[in-house]
Design a protein around this nucleic acid. Structure first.
Length: 900
DNA sequence: TCAATTTC
DNA sequence: GAAATTGA
């Protein structure tokens, strides 16, 4: 029989410091948990124990503290990142059926000592795993102490039976206690005897066997200061010995057989590992039946594929006057709708598209009940609306294009993923299984559990997975129904009801309409531009190869670094983790002295232009000659929207050559582009939120804000500000908006860090209320755990409690930046909704097409231009009532470049 | 996954 | 500070 014991805190501690920090998408730290479990699995495999237990300390004074106040007094408090992992690993261990043994008033050491003694008495072989050498005193010929050491080459394990210990240390394990009594232990704050260190302690104990024997023989010892100390501090030595002695008789009560090692890979443990996103551990659960779920609502899920049954189902909904229904539509990448699940909380059904139940029929039924007043709740409503639009007739589609998706498809729907995003915008995704777990406290299968390696789109095409698809869809509908109210309650409690109802949901419809419209793009012109770029790129390539003396891949930073800094021996190369940095700002410094650098920088610029824009945009043009980007509403931490496939929010504008790309975006016949962008919206938000009179005054006076800043910061009359001063002031303004660090600012404007700090200090002096405002943002975020915008939108900032200085500094910048960026985002969202809604309300045919953070682009019918201009101006300028005016710059043009 | 580049 | 895309 074999007993394996683990020292919980010690191993968790080793894992925490020995492994890189891991965080799951909810921002929970998991690195130590992962390391601990791996270590545990390794020992279980190696040792093949029949019994297994883990001991943890509890945070309470032990009998040792009662003996000696200062016991462990020098211990630093545990990092918060590690502390939060303690209950989690215990939770997982319990889920695995592993006894987690803790005892108030006793240390894990005593528990381990006692258990090992009992184990030995029962005739078992015992292995104790710990990173702590204190436990070595427990070694006997039956009790082995294993100390894992993480080295670069992997984990090495030192094993000590009593005889190994004696060989290594020259004393017995029991005598090691006496050694410690003499030399003390700084980590536990055991005093020991002054002047006696490791050497003397071992020597004495090896010779006399114990402190008592030493004490009895002091007269024989050579006269020395340490001997006097020893005699003087005999009481301390005795106390130290007591402190250092692990108690083998802790009053542990264990049920018979409770340490028996069973199947660790339980369903419960699997779900926890999944929850903490310990993906590498999941394969270990291979043989666990993880498809079955602890939640049994799935039993009541029903699939219907009989036409009349579906008919009566929808009739019932109408008759019973259901006000709210959770819904989910199943479709793959082909956008073909395979079915829809609906849930009213009591019954949940999956309607399969098949036979007379066509997608067309099903979608129209859904639209019908929604228009009749039933509120539908979806995951990713915007996408659902696209799926539905896809199966509509041409006339219906036209109506959607002209009158908007809200009135034509779902006038009364909500999106639970957007709601969940508002509650915590820092997560990666907002899936039903995640929200179910968080809001309803139930564990439901995720796509991966139901479909295995297949994705939903493949599963939809695989008849054998119909059951799984049914379960999946039903859960989505069921959770949409069940979680929405709870999410909303939390949103209301957090004071974000207004944001959800009056900003995000209307915005969703606005974004849908923008996506439906798309923007016309000249594919031919792009192809020509690409050709033009190719010619110049080839020239540059040749030039670079000639200067380098060989051909290589210029796009590979690794190869480029080697060529520049090794082969060509260019001085001043900076290192990154993986090699030399070849970033533009690094190379630019080296450009004057090295002609090849100029060519490389130009090559880079053109290569980016060609690959991302000239070539990258071409396949995005649809059959209608327009590009339909997707605006993501649940991605950014601050509340901004983002744009993908393609990203139309980073189309070049600064570089002369790059901005030519904007020419290929053009208005349709009879239209011009009206492009309006907020002037300095973030600084205006800052002026308002800080209430700083100087900044507000500068805006009210209509001054060039960077010049005004320069004038204050450099103490120069306004009209004598030099260009350089203005440029520096502009960088400082940017820095403030972005949550300044002297380091970042220094890098930005090419001055020393000290000088940059002076700029910041001057800035804070120039705007007296700014300092208190920014400090207030930091302390408020730290206290509350989140940063908050003017409208109450929240963004968690757990980094503020990090033990790592860099992380904490990052958190501070986030705390300063998020409210500003987020408030600006709120304002333009409000403006978008208002512009969009008013264009429709006033019966104008002109359409909002794009948003680029502080800019709106409207495809404007020429005969509506005047009206549209005033709509844009009014709605954008009045989107928020700040202590400074919101001003916009508006231009018209026959392409995006001209209009900007 | 990382480094680099583009935008606001 | 916030993003998305590309290529290795």
């Amino acid at each position: 029989m074999k007993l394996l014991l683990m020292d919980g805190h010690s191993i968790l501690n080793r894992a925490y410091y020995g492994l890189p920090d891991l965080t799951n998408s909810a921002g929970e730290h998991t690195g130590a948990i992962f390391g601990f479990l791996n270590m545990m699995f390794k020992f279980i495999e190696d040792e093949q124990p029949d019994n297994f237990a883990v001991a943890f300390d509890v945070h309470a004074p032990t009998f040792r503290h009662k003996m000696y106040d200062a016991y462990k007094g020098t211990r630093k408090p545990m990092d918060p990142e590690l502390r939060e992992q303690v209950p989690r690993i215990q939770e997982i261990l319990k889920a695995m059926g592993v006894p987690v043994i803790t005892m108030e008033g006793w240390e894990a050491d005593d528990i381990l000592g006692t258990l090992s003694r009992i184990g030995q008495e029962k005739g078992m072989d015992v292995t104790i795993v710990s990173g702590d050498r204190d436990l070595l005193q427990l070694a006997t010929d039956k009790i082995k102490i294993s100390i894992p050491k993480t080295k670069k080459t992997g984990t090495e394990i030192e094993n000590y039976f009593a005889k190994d210990f004696e060989q290594a240390y020259g004393v017995t394990p029991k005598q090691y206690i006496d050694v410690k009594a003499l030399m003390g232990d700084s980590s536990d704050n055991i005093p020991g005897v002054a002047g006696i260190g490791e050497k003397t302690a071992f020597k004495w104990i090896a010779q006399y066997g114990s402190i008592e024997e030493c004490h009895a023989h002091v007269s024989e010892m050579k006269k020395a200061k340490v001997v006097d100390n020893f005699i003087e501090q005999w009481d301390t030595a005795v106390l130290s010995k007591e402190l250092a002695t692990i108690n083998l008789n802790a009053p542990i009560e264990l049920e018979e057989g409770s340490t028996k090692l069973g199947n660790l890979f339980t369903e419960e443990a699997y779900l926890l590992c999944k929850r903490y996103e310990l993906k590498k551990l999941l394969p270990r659960f291979e043989n666990t039946d993880t498809a079955s779920v602890t939640d049994n609502t799935a039993d009541s899920f029903k699939r219907v594929n009989d036409f009349s049954e579906v008919e009566t189902f929808f009739e019932d909904i109408k008759k019973t006057g259901k006000a709210f229904i959770g819904a989910s539509i199943m479709a793959g990448d082909d956008k073909v709708i395979r079915g829809a699940a609906l849930s009213d909380g009591e019954s949940t059904v999956y309607v399969e598209c098949q036979g007379f139940i066509s997608a067309d029929y099903l979608c129209h039924k859904l639209m019908e009940i929604c228009k009749a007043g039933v509120r539908l709740c979806f995951w990713d409503l915007k996408n659902v609306m696209h799926l539905i639009t896809n199966i509509l007739s041409d006339d219906e589609k036209k109506a959607v294009m002209e009158k908007g998706g809200k009135s034509q498809i779902f006038p009364n729907a909500v999106d639970v993923s957007v709601a969940a995003y508002l509650l915590n915008p820092t997560k990666k995704e907002y899936t039903a299984d995640d929200v179910a777990n968080e809001m309803l406290g139930i564990i439901i299968p995720a796509a991966a559990d139901l479909f295995g390696k297949k994705k939903l789109k493949d599963a939809l095409l695989d008849d054998s997975l119909l059951e799984a698809v049914t379960t999946y869809a039903c859960y989505e509908a069921y959770v949409a129904y069940g979680a929405f109210e709870k999410v909303m309650a939390e949103i209301e409690a957090a004071g974000m009801g207004h944001i959800f109802t009056d900003i995000e949901m209307p915005l969703l419809y606005t974004l849908f309409d923008m996506e439906i419209q798309g923007i016309a793009m000249d594919k031919e012109a792009l192809a020509q531009f690409s050709q033009k770029l190719s010619t110049r790129i080839e020239e540059l390539e040749k030039d670079i190869y000639a200067q380098a003396g060989e051909e290589f891949n210029i796009n590979s930073p690794k190869q480029l670094g080697v060529i520049l800094f090794e082969k060509m021996g260019i001085e001043g190369g900076k290192k990154t983790k993986t090699g030399y940095s070849t970033a533009a700002d690094v190379l630019e410094e080296l450009a004057p002295a090295n002609p090849i650098i100029g060519s490389i920088l130009e090559y880079r610029q053109l290569a980016k232009l060609k690959s991302t824009y000239a070539d990258g945009l071409q396949p995005c043009v649809g059959e209608d000659g327009r590009v339909h980007s997707t605006f993501m509403q649940t991605v950014t931490a601050t509340g901004r929207i983002s744009s993908i496939e393609p990203n139309l929010q980073n189309i070049p504008i600064r570089m002369e050559l790059g901005k030519e790309i904007r020419r290929v975006f053009y208005p349709k016949d009879g239209c011009v582009f009206l492009d309006a962008d907020y002037s300095q919206i973030e600084l205006r938000v800052l002026a308002h939120m800080s209430g700083d009179d100087n900044l507000i005054g500068a805006f009210k006076a209509g001054q060039d804000i960077h010049r005004s800043t320069a004038s204050l910061v450099f103490n120069t009359p306004f009209d004598q500000v030099t260009d350089l001063q203005r440029r520096s002031a502009k960088a400082v303004n940017f820095g403030i908006v972005y949550g300044i660090s002297a380091f970042g600012l220094a890098k930005d404007i090419g001055v020393g860090r000290k000088e940059a700090q002076e700029y910041i200090d001057n800035y804070l002096k120039a705007y007296p209320k700014m300092h208190t405002f920014l400090e207030g943002l930091k302390s408020s975020a730290k206290e509350k755990g989140y940063a908050v915008t003017l409208y109450g939108r929240r963004r968690p900032v757990p980094e503020l409690n990090s033990s790592n200085f860099m992380n904490r500094q990052f958190g501070e910048r986030v705390a300063m930046n998020s409210p500003i960026q987020g408030t600006a985002a709120d304002i333009i969202k409000i403006a978008m909704v208002k512009v969009h809604d008013r264009l429709l309300a006033e019966g104008l045919k002109s359409k909002l097409l794009l948003q680029v953070h502080d800019e709106l682009l409207v495809e404007t019918y020429i005969d509506e231009q005047e009206k549209v201009e005033s709509v844009i101006r009014e709605e954008m300028e009045n989107a928020a009532e700040l202590s400074v005016k919101l001003e916009i710059d508006m231009n018209e043009g026959s392409n995006w470049l001209e209009a900007h």
